[in-house]
């Protein structure tokens, strides 16, 4: 029984990996590309969940952290001739450092005040990016399509003896990163650190009195979370083959928070559903009506309905089903 409980998550993960591996054989190359974006959002959601779901710090500014990662990749590729995949770890480190530094002033803020402060970064990010035009390309942004450092955009790439076109390459790249990121987050959260994070979330006073260092764990959570967002932003730049200030709008930051809430705060399993939701909701809502303004209203209504039916997100639904079947 005990062994089964420990093996269950591993078995579920292996099953997921197998599904991810074989799925492209059953869907079109275009669909594979859409699913690549699901993986990208999944990476960002894992990061945001470490911060918001596990440590209880609300961030409305993760789109800005994604922008840091995306621009790191774009600038390294175009100005320094670095191959796209090698820019990903650099984007992770750099954005992680930025997140850690932002975590320091954030220590003095909590709850709604922190949410507002992070929202301010998301709002100011486009203006800051435009300010350094020589570096970031300003409003016109940086184009990556056709740049030799971008893998497979013009000619297929050979990976382990298989020829991959751009869409399939994106799919495998993003999902590999997402699955590795998933395992790392799981390892981090199941141990002492995860326990400390949750203690901070549930009661800062209680955590502190049990010897949990608030500054240490809060800044750590910010750093880890931002590193994930940076990786997501880096992959986003590679997949979109273009970055400009408008590719990381305020709406993206809000959408990420929506994804975490839909997936289920403080749970990893629901996040895939959250990522699917934020990738496909805009596409689905257009199928309902294409008259001006209508897609936004449809998205809003679906979200409201979902919050009524699944207040704890998809992970909450899974939990509820489990208790039902036990009875």
């Amino acid at each position: 029984m005990r062994l089964g409980r420990q093996l269950a998550p591993v078995a579920a993960f292996v099953a997921l990996a197998v599904v991810v591996l074989v799925l492209p054989s059953f869907v079109s190359a275009f669909r594979a590309q859409q699913l690549a974006y699901v993986a990208i959002y999944l990476v960002a959601l894992i990061g945001l969940n470490v911060l918001t779901g596990y440590t209880g710090q609300i961030s409305l500014g993760h789109g800005a952290f994604m922008a840091v990662g995306g621009y790191t990749t774009a600038i390294l590729m175009t100005d320094y001739g670095m191959k796209d995949v090698w820019t990903i770890p650099i984007a992770a480190l750099l954005t992680g450092a930025v997140g850690f530094l932002f975590g320091l002033p954030a220590l003095r803020l909590s709850g709604l005040y922190l949410a507002l402060a992070t929202f301010a970064i998301a709002v100011s990010a486009p203006a800051v990016i435009k300010r350094f035009e020589g570096f970031t390309g300003g409003g016109s942004g940086i184009n990556l399509f056709g740049v030799p450092e971008l893998t497979a955009s013009l000619t297929p790439v050979d990976v382990l003896g298989r020829e991959l076109v751009f869409n399939d390459w994106l799919y495998y790249l993003t999902w590999t990163v997402a699955l590795v990121g998933y395992v790392l987050a799981w390892l981090l959260l199941r141990g002492r650190t995860g326990l400390a994070f949750r203690a901070v979330r549930d009661s800062e006073t209680a955590a502190q009195s049990s010897g949990v260092s608030l500054p240490r764990y809060k800044t750590l959570a910010f750093g880890v979370s931002a590193a994930y967002a940076g990786v997501a932003g880096s992959l986003f730049a590679i997949a979109t083959t273009f970055v400009n200030p408008d590719t990381f709008p305020i709406a993206l930051s809000i959408l990420l928070l929506v994804g975490v809430v839909v997936g289920g705060l403080g749970s990893l399993v629901g996040l895939i559903a959250g990522a699917v939701f934020i990738q496909f909701l805009p596409i689905w809502s257009q199928e309902v009506s294409r008259s001006p303004g209508a897609p936004a209203v449809v998205s809003g209504l679906i979200l409201i309905a979902l919050m009524f039916v699944l207040p704890m997100g998809v992970a909450g639904l899974a939990g509820r089903l489990r208790t039902l079947t036990k009875r």
Binding site: S28, A29, F30, R31, Q33, Q34, Y37, G141, N167, F236, T240, T241, F242, N244, D246, T247, F248, P249, A251, P282, Q286, R290, P295, A296
Partner: peptide, 22 residues
């Protein structure tokens, strides 16, 4: 066939690929 990109160039890219490839 026109699709809503919400004036976000990243969405423009994805939707243009959809229009061309799908």
């Amino acid at each position: 066939k026109y699709l809503d990109d919400q004036y976000d160039p990243a969405k423009t890219v994805q939707l243009t690929r959809q229009l061309v490839e799908q």
